[in-house]
Simulated scan of single mutants.
Amino acid sequence: MSDRPLVSIIINNCNYDCYIGEAIESALNQTYPDLEVIVVDDGSIDNSREVIARYRDRIIPVLKENEGQSSAFNAGFTIAKGDIICFLDADDIALVEKVSEVVSVFKDNPDIGWCFHSLKVMDMKTGELLKRVHRDNAYITVTEQTKQERSQKCDFRASMLEQGKVNFIIPPTSGLCFTRSLLKQIFPLPQYKAHKTSADRCLKFSAIALSPGFFLDQELTIQRVHDNNAYTARGDRQQYMARSILIMANWMRVRFPELSKFTNKSFAKGLSIYWRTGGVEASAKELVKKYLASISILERLEISLRAFYYTLKMWGR
């Protein structure tokens, strides 16, 4: 990597016209000079494209039909030229020093393929800072300073390969940065018309399975929680999460078969969520059928027992 590598910031947007301008401004106002800003609009029907057009001489716009977040990521990566790729959701804001800090981490650790950092989470109604409750992927208001993880180099490859698990809470899209060389091993991401968000799950779990990385305990992005969040505002959030897990398990099983222990455990987790929330929805039944058809009878039995265990564990919490 050169002393001043080119950095690509890929912003994915769909119907966030009231937020996208601030996201673009935050990307353009970085203290790090060598960057390109790619804005992928995934078929917005609001005024997003009018907002994006105001920046056309300063950004690289990609205007496409609505096919989902994975499709937007794929389109952005296809034209990105940076040695380092950072992702930013259209309703989030990157702090001005973000790219400089991330570049420093990659330069100091030339063997890593990813750098994930902490985020500030803000309630747009109240302006209060929140913290994520990872059990349900929900949020509560921060009432006191919580102990944070220390910045550190990480390598989860062995635990994902041998135990099929990783004891690491990975930040969402706007906290994810990668080397171009690592993303070449992962892209393109799977596209499902019935499931158009949460594409970061495939991206981040594949990355930590393939390469060592670095967790940077600095809050370099503001994640804004509001009534129109594509994921957090969903009434069927649990089933939506289960479906995204099944998509990831199916895709990673084919793409990285050596990670079968991880994909089997992930599949069991997704199945257990469905069991607790009324059963597998129609749009996910094909995913269940496809995965079970690809594994042995012994693996199916193990998955059923594990899903049953996860269900009892969640009911008894």
Rank of each mutant, 00 (worst) to 15 (best):
M124H: 03
K64I: 08
T197E: 14
F178C: 02
I295G: 03
L95C: 04
A230L: 00
S272C: 10
L305K: 07
S283D: 15
E25M: 07
I85N: 15
D236G: 06
I85F: 07
T141V: 12
A72Q: 12
E144N: 10
N13P: 09
L182E: 04
N15R: 13
T126A: 06
C86T: 12
R276C: 11
K98S: 15
S206D: 01
N29K: 04
K265Q: 00
I20G: 11
E50Q: 14
E219N: 02
V99Y: 12
G21Y: 12
I112G: 11
R300C: 09
K261W: 02
T232L: 06
Q69W: 08
P61R: 07
E65G: 05
E50D: 15
I10T: 09
R317A: 09
K125V: 06
N228A: 12
F187T: 00
A75M: 05
M160W: 03
A23E: 08
E22R: 13
Q152I: 04
V142I: 01
S260N: 12
P171R: 12
S296L: 04
L176N: 06
Q30K: 03
I112D: 05
R276G: 11
F168W: 13
R135C: 03
L203I: 01
E50C: 03
M122P: 14
L63H: 09
L88C: 00
C154H: 01
I79P: 12
I38Y: 01
L287Y: 12
M122T: 09
C154F: 04
D123L: 03
G21V: 08
S260E: 11
S304G: 15
F262L: 02
E25I: 06
K289T: 04
K261Y: 13
I208E: 01
I93V: 10
G113Q: 11
T173Q: 04
S260G: 01
T78R: 11
F73P: 10
V51Q: 10
Y291K: 02
F87G: 02
T179V: 01
V7K: 00
R306K: 15
Y240D: 03
K196H: 08
K261C: 07
E286H: 15
V225Y: 15
Y32A: 13
I297T: 02
S266P: 03
T141D: 08
W315N: 15
R180K: 15
Q152P: 05
D17W: 07
G76C: 10
A249H: 00
R224Y: 10
A233S: 06
S26L: 05
V254A: 05
R243F: 08
M252I: 00
W275A: 11
V40F: 14
G113D: 04
K184Y: 07
R243I: 05
N250E: 13
N250D: 07
D89M: 14
E258S: 01
K64C: 06
S2T: 05
C18L: 13
I208P: 06
K261N: 04
I38H: 10
G316E: 05
